[in-house]
């Protein structure tokens, strides 16, 4: 009989304590961020999709078309091409296309680039109805950015 009442009161107490905790939280401020209206600033190391980096002065891509990034990529997302203009010492990038649909954001390409030609963007609002929208022409994006 003692056991019976112990169980009854112990159980009831645990239920009341539980109610106390939820009401305590109810009156506290909310912790969520109202996403489309507010948005987060990504941390410095955030890894978005990759982006070509331009030279500070000329704005042209720093890429020398060595192809390391392409070889390092586990998913084969990077397609690039370049040519060597007459008389120039280095190759010049003619196209750099990232197939973001396959990219796993692993960062191997950025690490493998010895010339600091690519970096991570801070973009995370990436959703869309069409697959084609995520095949990025990074060279064009660079040109648009540097105006």
């Amino acid at each position: 009989m003692g056991e019976y009442f112990k169980e009854l009161f112990g159980g009831t107490k645990s239920l009341v304590v539980g109610l106390g905790i939820t009401i305590k939280h109810m009156v506290k401020p909310v912790v969520t961020l109202q996403y489309p209206h507010e948005s987060l600033k990504m941390s410095a190391r955030f890894r978005g999709h990759i982006e070509l980096l331009g030279d500070e002065e000329t704005g042209a891509s720093k890429c020398v078309v060595c192809g390391m990034c392409q070889r390092a990529c586990p998913s084969g997302c990077i397609a690039l091409a370049g040519e060597k203009p007459e008389g120039a010492k280095k190759k010049v990038l003619t196209s750099y296309v990232l197939d973001f649909t396959k990219c796993s954001l692993c960062g191997q390409c950025v690490e493998s680039c010895k010339f600091g030609a690519i970096t991570f963007s801070k973009e995370y609002n990436l959703a869309g109805p069409r697959k084609e929208a995520y095949i990025f022409d990074l060279k064009k994006r660079l040109e648009e950015r540097s105006g």
Partner: peptide
């Protein structure tokens, strides 16, 4: 996840360790 993101750059599918050490 915020903490880990600040070092690894990802929130879920981390790719942080390297053979011999760390990414950063």
């Amino acid at each position: 996840l915020d903490l880990l993101e600040s070092v690894t750059g990802a929130r879920l599918t981390f790719c942080y360790f390297r053979f011999g050490g760390l990414y950063n």
